[in-house]
Amino acid sequence: MGTYIIVGASHGIGEATATKLIGAGHRVINIARSENPACENHVWDAASEDSLPTIEGPIAGIVYSPGSIVLKPFHRLTQADFQSDFQINVLGAVKVIQTYLPNLKQNGGGSIVMYSTVAVQTGMGFHASIASSKGAIEGLTRSLAAELSSLHIRVNAIAPSLTNTPLAAALLNSPEKIEASGKRHPLGRVGESKDIANLTYFLLDPENSWITGQIIGVDGGMGSLKPA
Score class of each variant (00 low, 15 high):
V70G: 04
L162D: 02
I69G: 05
I215G: 01
K95D: 07
I29F: 06
N164K: 14
V118I: 13
A80T: 14
T99P: 03
L140E: 01
A16I: 07
T3K: 15
A24Q: 14
V113Y: 05
D50L: 09
R76M: 12
E138L: 06
F126E: 07
N103M: 07
A46K: 02
I62P: 04
L104H: 03
T99K: 14
V190K: 00
S111T: 07
G125K: 12
I211G: 08
K20F: 10
Q121N: 13
G213K: 01
T99D: 06
R33L: 04
I137G: 02
P160L: 08
E179R: 14
Y201F: 15
I31Q: 02
T117M: 03
A197E: 06
S10K: 03
I69D: 11
Q79H: 12
S143P: 02
Q98P: 02
E35M: 09
L162Q: 04
S48R: 12
T17M: 03
I215M: 04
V94R: 08
T163V: 12
G220D: 04
K183C: 05
I97E: 02
N41A: 09
I6T: 10
S51Q: 13
T54S: 14
I137T: 06
E40H: 10
N198E: 14
A32W: 04
I55D: 09
G220L: 09
H127M: 14
S48I: 12
T200Y: 02
F202K: 00
V94P: 01
F82I: 12
G135F: 01
S48V: 13
P66H: 10
S84R: 15
N198L: 11
I22S: 01
V63G: 02
N164C: 07
A145N: 08
A180H: 08
R184S: 13
V113I: 15
L167S: 06
R33F: 01
H26W: 03
H127K: 10
M124D: 07
E179Q: 13
H75R: 13
I97Y: 03
S84G: 10
S129A: 15
W44P: 01
Y201M: 06
G191S: 05
A60L: 12
R76Q: 15
A180S: 12
I97S: 00
L144N: 01
A131V: 09
S129V: 11
D50V: 09
H26Q: 07
K226N: 14
N103I: 09
E35C: 08
L71M: 14
P166W: 12
G2E: 10
I178P: 00
S174V: 10
N107F: 04
V43A: 15
T19R: 14
V7F: 05
L199A: 06
E35K: 15
A32G: 13
I97W: 00
W210T: 11
F74Q: 08
T99W: 06
L144G: 00
Q87T: 15
G8S: 06
G108W: 07
A24V: 05
E147M: 08
I137K: 00
H11W: 08
